[in-house]
Simulated assay, not measured.
Amino acid sequence: MTVRVGFIGTGGIATSHLLNLASIEDAEVVALCDIAPNRVEEAREYVNRNILTRSEAEGVEPRLIEAATYTDYRQMIRNERLDAVYICLPPFAHGDPEHAALDANLHMLVEKPVALDLRVANDILRRINEQGVIATAGYQLRYMGFIDKAIELLRNTVIGQTIVLRFTRTPGTSWYHRQDRSGGMMIEMATHQVDLLRFLVGEIRKVYAAAATRINNLDNPEYDIFDVNSSTFTFDNGAVCSFAINFLTGPSGLPDLRGVHIFCKDYILSMDISLKVRRGDDVEEFGLEHDPMLEEDKAFIEAVKTSNPAILRSDYLSAVRTLAVTIANDRSARSGMPVDVNELLRAEAPQAAW
Rank of each mutant, 00 (worst) to 15 (best):
E42H: 09
G12I: 13
A36C: 06
E42L: 09
L52S: 11
D34Y: 05
L52E: 11
A31Q: 05
A27I: 04
E42M: 11
S23R: 03
N50G: 13
V47F: 01
L18E: 13
V29K: 02
L19V: 12
I51R: 07
A27F: 00
R39I: 05
E28C: 08
I51L: 05
V40G: 04
E25W: 04
E28T: 10
N38D: 14
I24R: 03
A22N: 00
I51E: 04
T53A: 13
T10Y: 03
S16A: 13
R44A: 12
R44Q: 13
T15P: 06
L21Y: 15
A43V: 06
C33E: 08
D34K: 06
E28P: 05
E45I: 13
G12E: 14
I51S: 09
A31P: 07
D34S: 11
I13E: 15
A27N: 05
I13M: 15
V47E: 01
I24W: 00
I13D: 12
L19F: 01
V30S: 03
I13C: 14
E41M: 05
G11A: 15
T15Y: 06
E45C: 08
T15A: 10
L32T: 03
A22D: 01
S23Y: 00
E28I: 07
N50K: 04
G12Q: 14
I51T: 10
A14I: 10
L32V: 09
R44G: 10
H17I: 11
N48A: 05
L21V: 09
D26Y: 07
E25V: 10
E25K: 12
D26W: 02
E41F: 00
D34A: 09
E28Y: 02
C33A: 10
D34V: 09
L32I: 10
R49Y: 06
I51W: 05
P37G: 04
H17L: 11
V30Y: 00
P37M: 02
N50R: 03
I8C: 07
V29T: 12
A14Y: 00
T10K: 02
R49K: 12
T53I: 11
H17V: 11
V30T: 01
I35N: 02
N20L: 08
